[in-house]
Design a protein around this nucleic acid. Structure first.
Length: 586
DNA sequence: TTAGGGTTAG
């Protein structure tokens, strides 16, 4: 009998564990399973769950076959249930894991900590915060809450589903925390738009004497990138070098991203050039994106070429990065050429790529070509794409396309304030105040909330944040005096307010003052009053910089002889001696 | 015996 067995099964009686490890292909798994069945060992073999596990989760396996095996088990144990559950949680349809858990717990099947862990992972993947909360109470009821690993899973699920308060609460109440628990919350806060809290948790962790590892610094660096917190980022980088954490390619990539988003693109390049570990495709994409953000289109194109030469074929993100570089540098022909070359390079353009090339053509005033692409693309244009087209048609005064684009946005149920503002700007430019009023009414009826614009500047480790028309800063009198001085001096240099950036049909003079107190101007004015002459000023804005502010800051950089760097939502603007690094192409 | 924390994106 033994002789008929495949060779790898001949050792079966003695080395079942080893054989399981050798199951690296689906046929082998099947052979082993068939053998256990035919020899009658299947129902009682302790390694059965491992075989199921292997089948359910390994790339060589097959979840439906795992289920087929499961059904042959007369009395499934918790481990058998868990194996299927784990497979479902990792599958393309993780919501099935939640149903599986329900079947399991509603029957009289014993649930253990692993059952909860796998189900929670599924909740994270489908963003099921409600189910996670229910599981949380069951975890408490079963008495598993003291399990540090399960606690970490729980807080991670809360963070990933956007329930950051619950995540913090789980963390605070954990009886035993280890490095993974800290990492989960730091990363959760950083990714959940709370980078300040992420950084302060990172500092607290160090204060409590815990040593960060590669995953910790990834979360902390991501927070620094978002905040533009370069000093903190540099400290973390030096820790990374001391501890040799930069042998991890993900850590090195995060360092590159941090320097780029903090405005130090040269340092980002330096880190990229001197990487000791093997560069991944993310390394290339990150540096190309960095150059794009800083408007260095030619270098981005050069690196895009180099990455292919280095044997790293570009992926969808690489194309987005290089198209964005062309966008920010006004390299229209290069952008169109690269976009057209995508299919031949084996990368299918997605809606974002179409959006990017439409934006590129639109900004260059080639509205007809842009609109032709919209009409010929194989998928529905999304909101962002119509917004780019709307924005371009306003810049080039094409009311016809502007109305088409804005109608599409309305049809798509857009409730973004920006869309309404853009449309109303078209009408404002043509002094069609009735239409402006109509748009304003539509905004009210749709309950459109304007995402508040804010800008901030870091001085000696303190963030100073400003909103539009902000009087809350302790030095507001000084700031507003500076604003008045700026208004006076820029007019001497021939500045005329471009009032179309203001939504309402108020009097010209009022419009001018509404522009005056935009958050980025307040931050720059504060920078001028609070730093030494000649020192560069760096400001970060959450939205795109306003056109009028762009014009004003250019003049400020000249008359006050300051380099002013503004990072907006899309890119960096480096103002120097009266001009901007974006070449006004933005 | 098996589980938890991760970088790029118009």
């Amino acid at each position: 009998m033994l002789l008929q067995l495949p060779i790898f099964l001949m050792e079966l009686p003695v080395y079942l564990e080893t054989l399981l490890q050798k199951c690296n292909s689906f046929p082998r798994i099947k052979q082993l399973q068939a053998h256990l069945m035919t020899t009658g060992r299947f129902q009682f073999c302790p390694s059965r769950s491992k075989l199921l596990d292997l089948c359910a989760i390994s790339p060589a396996g097959d979840l439906s076959f795992a289920y087929h095996i499961f059904r042959k088990i007369r009395i499934p144990r918790t481990n058998d249930w868990n194996a299927i559950l784990r497979g479902l949680a990792q599958s393309a349809n993780p919501v099935k894991a939640i149903s599986w858990y329900k079947t399991m717990s509603h029957g009289s099947h014993r649930v253990d900590a692993l059952t909860c862990s796998f189900t929670l992972k599924a909740c994270a993947r489908v963003l099921a915060c409600c189910e996670a909360t229910q599981l949380h109470s069951q975890v408490v009821r079963y008495g598993f809450i003291a399990d540090a690993k399960l606690g970490t899973t729980l807080l991670d699920v809360y963070a990933k589903t956007g329930c950051l308060d619950s995540a913090k609460k789980v963390f605070d109440e954990m009886s035993k925390r280890d490095i993974a628990s800290w990492n989960a919350l730091i990363a959760g806060l950083a990714q959940g738009d709370q980078p300040i809290e992420a950084l302060s948790l990172f500092k607290r962790m160090r204060f409590e004497g815990l040593k960060p590892n590669d995953r910790t610094v990834l979360g902390a660096l991501s927070a620094c990138s978002q905040l533009g917190a370069v000093r903190e980022g540099e400290k973390i980088h030096s820790f990374i070098r001391d501890e040799n954490l930069d042998t991890n390619v993900q850590v090195s990539n995060a360092v590159i991203d941090m320097y780029a988003k903090c405005g130090l693109v040269e340092k980002a390049c330096l880190v990229f050039d001197n990487m000791t570990c093997k560069k991944s495709i993310v390394s290339w994409n990150t540096i190309i994106m960095a150059l794009a953000m800083h408007g260095d289109g030619y270098k981005a194109l050069e690196l895009f070429k180099q990455m292919a030469q280095a044997g790293v074929p570009p992926d969808v993100v690489s194309y987005l990065a290089v198209l964005s570089a062309c966008n920010h540098a006004g390299l229209v022909e290069d952008g169109v050429r690269l976009f057209n070359s995508m299919p031949a390079c084996g990368v299918t353009p997605a809606v974002k790529h179409y959006g990017s090339v439409v934006d590129l053509l639109g900004r260059a005033g080639r509205l007809k070509e842009a609109y032709d692409i919209v009409n010929s693309m194989p998928m529905y244009p999304d909101v962002v794409l119509w917004q780019s087209l709307l924005s371009a048609s306003i810049t080039y005064n094409n009311v016809e396309i502007a109305e088409i684009a804005s109608q599409k946005l309305v049809d798509m149920g857009s409730s973004s304030c920006g869309d309404f503002v853009l449309l109303s700007n078209v009408y404002a430019k043509h002094e069609r105040w009735n239409d402006v009023g109509r748009v304003r009414e539509a905004m009210k009826s749709r309950d459109v909330k304007k995402l508040p614009a804010f800008s901030y500047i870091e001085l000696e480790g303190t963030m100073h944040k400003f909103f539009t028309n902000d009087y809350s800063h302790e030095k507001w009198r000084e700031i507003h005096r500076k604003m008045e001085e700026i208004s006076f001096r820029i007019k001497e240099h021939g500045y005329v307010a471009e009032t179309s950036f203001v939504l309402h049909d108020i009097e010209e003079e009022e419009k001018e003052s509404a522009l005056c107190y935009h958050s980025e101007k307040l931050a720059v004015a504060f920078g001028l009053t609070s730093t030494n002459e000649g020192m560069p000023i760096q400001v970060i804005k959450n939205l795109r910089i306003c056109g009028d502010c762009h014009a004003v800051i250019k003049i400020i950089s000249k008359i006050y002889n300051r380099e002013i760097i503004v990072r907006d939502r899309a890119r960096f603007h480096r103002f120097k001696e009266g001009s901007c690094s974006c070449g006004d192409f933005w």
